[in-house]
Amino acid sequence: QVALSRTQVCGILREELFQGDAFHQSDTHIFIIMGASGDLAKKKIYPTIWWLFRDGLLPENTFIVGYARSRLTVADIRKQSEPFFKATPEEKLKLEDFFARNSYVAGQYDDAASYQRLNSHMNALHLGSQANRLFYLALPPTVYEAVTKNIHESCMSQIGWNRIIVEKPFGRDLQSSDRLSNHISSLFREDQIYRIDHYLGKEMVQNLMVLRFANRIFGPIWNRDNIACVILTFKEPFGTEGRGGYFDEFGIIRDVMQNHLLQMLCLVAMEKPASTNSDDVRDEKVKVLKCISEVQANNVVLGQYVGNPDGEGEATKGYLDDPTVPRGSTTATFAAVVLYVENERWDGVPFILRCGKALNERKAEVRLQFHDVAGDIFHQQCKRNELVIRVQPNEAVYTKMMTKKPGMFFNPEESELDLTYGNRYKNVKLPDAYERLILDVFCGSQMHFVRSDELREAWRIFTPLLHQIELEKPKPIPYIYGSRGPTEADELMKRVGFQYEGTYKWVNPHKL
């Protein structure tokens, strides 16, 4: 086992960053958080920038500027975001240094004079007029057009580079997404736009490419001749908990499936790229999406959770019991969808996408189930092999396979070949997804960000279904809070070829 401390991990990262040409360590950078008073800024962006600063992973002359409508001070920003920093008493001095680099400007999102004030403020910072500028839009999409237009007109660096990070949702359907994309691309070049999907920053999602293309053993079996089906799962054990009003506007397909799960599907299904260059990788992902037809209604199961009468606390409440959810809402909190990649490698292999709230566990994984062994000599005792990439929690890679049961006879039983990170790298604290992705933006690497043509294809696949749901308002199937979801989803999976045995229990190697 390799035991690495946080300091050692960050030392390795620093070495990698400083050796590259793309990370300008000594240049002045300004990180501007648009929507600095909001939840995302408070819980994710400010803490992430602090962790990067604490670990010495930001360029040395980096300033952080918050911008929002609320009249706040840096002290206010500190008060609301610091509880999420997880700072230790030993880091007190470092924390003071961090907040000394912070400033805040209040202004409207659609007022040109406010942006001119913001620009004057940035120019007044040390070497601010020639600094590289990175704008993070932690804002609702309704203000994107006004904000990007004003940034472009008043706040661009004339000497350094300018980059803009856009948070999902990128529209509600193909038409609104196209409108937003066309607007942003009329102001910024594609190499300046970073559409963030934080799932692409997760260690195991990034590991998929290495697993596939750096190991000879997987190449020959990664196709329709050997793989019976692919299941991509995202499960949350909690409901909307008072935030249903926002969720109800989008629903589970827009929230998770059309982005996170579809991105994971691309990494499983794509061909080997010409290189690890950002556009070479994204070219292959677009090719996969172009091979997927629009979702067919007979390959869809929609569910909505109801309270568990035997549960406790939140578990007793259904989705419609959330006071922020519109009365009688038919918005799905669970969806199972089957897609097919219609190309030579994957023809006929079902890709089953499942996601839901208020389920029995927290889990995100990719599961490849292989065909049955031909010419069975073990009297149907063999179960199908599976390769599982567990994204969260407890990152893991393992192969479910058959071995001989101890004893006199040739009785096979299920076991696993474990390729888990935790076994080799004991207690290594890896940077989280937002840390990686923000560092990628500083480096100018777009590999783990969504390109406009990729986004367009993703919406093309799901828009007809979303429009049909909005028009017909089908009643989702009720499922109990804390269950596996509607049984109809299991029946759909069985119908397209997935075999669920229920006889195997994964042993978490992190707890051995």
Rank of each mutant, 00 (worst) to 15 (best):
D255C: 07
D255E: 15
V256R: 15
Q258W: 07
Q258L: 15
H260T: 11
L261Y: 02
L261E: 01
L262F: 05
L262H: 00
L265Y: 00
C266R: 00
A269W: 02
A269M: 01
A269C: 11
A269R: 01
E271H: 05
P273I: 00
N277D: 13
D279I: 10
D280V: 08
D280M: 13
R282E: 01
D283V: 10
D283Q: 06
E284G: 06
V288T: 06
L289G: 00
S293I: 03
Q296P: 08
A297W: 11
V300C: 11
V306Q: 10
N308C: 09
E312R: 13
E314I: 11
K317Y: 09
G318L: 00
Y319K: 00
L320D: 15
D321F: 03
D322M: 08
G328E: 07
S329I: 01
T330M: 09
T331G: 09
T333M: 00
A335H: 02
A335W: 01
A335I: 02
R345V: 09
D347V: 06
G348C: 02
V349R: 00
V349D: 00
V349W: 01
I352Y: 06
C355W: 04
K357C: 08
N360G: 13
R362H: 09
R362N: 13
L368R: 02
L368G: 01
Q369K: 12
F370E: 00
G375I: 06
G375F: 11
D376A: 11
F378I: 02
H379N: 13
Q380Y: 14
C382L: 13
K383V: 11
K383L: 08
R384I: 02
N385G: 05
L387H: 01
V388E: 04
I389K: 01
R390P: 12
V391W: 15
Q392H: 07
P393C: 02
N394C: 12
N394S: 04
E395Y: 14
A396F: 15
V397F: 13
V397Y: 09
M402A: 05
K404F: 14
G407H: 04
F409C: 14
F409M: 15
N411R: 12
N411C: 09
N411G: 07
E413K: 09
E414P: 11
D418T: 06
L419T: 08
T420R: 08
G422K: 04
R424W: 12
R424S: 14
R424F: 12
V428E: 12
K429M: 15
P431D: 13
D432R: 14
R436L: 11
V441W: 01
F442G: 00
C443F: 05
G444Q: 08
S445W: 13
S445C: 09
Q446A: 12
Q446G: 11
Q446W: 01
Q446H: 02
H448Y: 08
H448A: 15
F449E: 00
F449Y: 05
S452E: 04
S452K: 03
S452Q: 03
S452D: 08
E454Y: 10
R456E: 12
A458T: 15
W459F: 13
W459Q: 14
R460A: 02
R460V: 00
Q468R: 12
Q468I: 06
I469P: 08
I469Q: 09
E470R: 13
E470W: 05
L471P: 04
L471K: 10
E472L: 09
P474C: 09
Y479A: 00
S483I: 01
P486L: 08
T487L: 13
A489T: 13
A489C: 12
E491Q: 07
M493R: 12
V496G: 09
V496R: 12
G497Y: 12
F498K: 14
F498C: 15
Q499A: 13
Y500H: 12
Y500P: 15
Y504N: 14
Y504A: 15
Y504V: 12
P509T: 13
